[in-house]
């Protein structure tokens, strides 16, 4: 009996530790302080401050930037990634392996090295500072993940279907759109979700490539600079964190549950 309970207690302790900071943020987002205390009891003042504090304009601005950058770069990397996944899938084995290895580089490379290498590239070839650099950087680290999420779909596909469409008179483009696209669509969808999340979540690439003079800030870079500013850390951050945490956790749970549903269905079909 004891033997069976002990592992569960261990798991619960580790889970509690992992979630403690997140839970504390959510609880103390209602205290309108930054030091995890309740001096004035429960209040929604912090939530109001997101829109009313003297930093509200900058905050909303950086939120807008974050979303714009994420939308543009996840859209671009979804298109690039899906199209090239098809291309890579039909390459000769040797060149396919090479491209797949290079495609792994942005994923395995340490973020700081990638950020710095992009910065060197952008300055060497004098790319205009600001938006272009940030968005190109984001596309660079998002696209490999889109490819990785589309690839398995292509591998599961029965290659005869495409040939059959061609035999029945469809042009290659039509066959691509009508036959391959619907099959890989779930992969494209989850790929774009990953790209969007990664872009929103990014700090290092943006921080190093945004250029100090442009004044462009995303949420994470603004957060970072406000932790270092003399005026200190404002109470509106915890309410904002809470909103982000709830959003992120909901999205990730939904995507994962979907995946499990998909797996269940496949198993049923196999049976």
């Amino acid at each position: 009996m004891v033997k069976k309970v002990f592992p569960k207690i261990y798991l619960i302790i580790i889970l509690a530790l992992l979630y403690a900071p997140i839970i504390f943020v959510v609880i103390f987002s209602f205290s309108n302080t930054t030091n995890f205390t309740f001096p004035r009891g429960f209040s929604l003042e912090g939530y109001r401050a997101i829109f009313t504090s003297s930093h509200a304009e900058k905050l909303v601005d950086s939120l807008k930037n974050t979303v714009i950058i994420a939308l543009i770069s996840s859209f671009a990397s979804t298109i690039i990634g899906s199209v090239s996944a098809v291309g890579i899938f039909y390459m000769k084995p040797k060149s396919k392996a090479t491209i797949e290895n290079v495609n792994q580089l942005p994923i395995v490379n340490s973020e700081i090295v990638m950020a710095v290498s992009l910065m060197l590239f952008f300055t060497t070839f004098s790319f205009p500072t600001g938006w272009l650099r940030i968005i190109l950087g984001h596309i660079t680290f998002c696209t490999p993940y889109v490819i990785l999420s589309v690839m398995p779909r292509l591998m599961q596909m029965d290659s005869n279907i495409y040939e059959a469409a061609l035999d029945l008179g469809a042009s290659p483009i039509k066959a691509l759109v009508k036959v391959i696209l619907p099959i890989i669509f779930p992969g494209i969808l989850s790929g774009s979700a990953i790209a969007f999340t990664l872009s929103i979540d990014d700090f290092i690439i943006t921080q190093i490539n945004k250029g100090a003079a442009t004044g462009i800030d995303t949420l994470s870079t603004y957060l970072y600079s406000s932790t270092r500013s003399a005026s200190g850390f404002e109470p509106f951050w915890y309410p904002l964190f809470t909103i982000i945490i709830i959003l992120v956790i909901t999205i990730v749970l939904l995507v994962n549950l979907n995946k499990f549903k998909g797996k269940g269905k496949k198993k049923e079909e196999e049976v």
């Binding site: 690039i80 990634g81 199209v83 090239s84 098809v86 291309g87 890579i88 899938f89 039909y90 390459m91 000769k92 060149s95 491209i99 290079v102 495609n103 580089l105 942005p106 090295v113 990638m114 710095v116 290498s117 992009l118 060197l120 590239f121 060497t124 190109l136 950087g137 596309i139 660079t140 696209t143 490819i147 290659p172 691509l176």
Partner: peptide, 26 residues
């Protein structure tokens, strides 16, 4: 015959520019 691997060429260029060359610059 449009081999479908053509679809990968733009991305190969992209990788060249934004992954390989930056690392080579380091």
């Amino acid at each position: 015959h449009i081999t479908r691997s053509v679809f990968a060429y733009p991305y190969i260029l992209f990788l060249m520019f934004f992954v390989i060359i930056p690392l080579a610059l380091i």
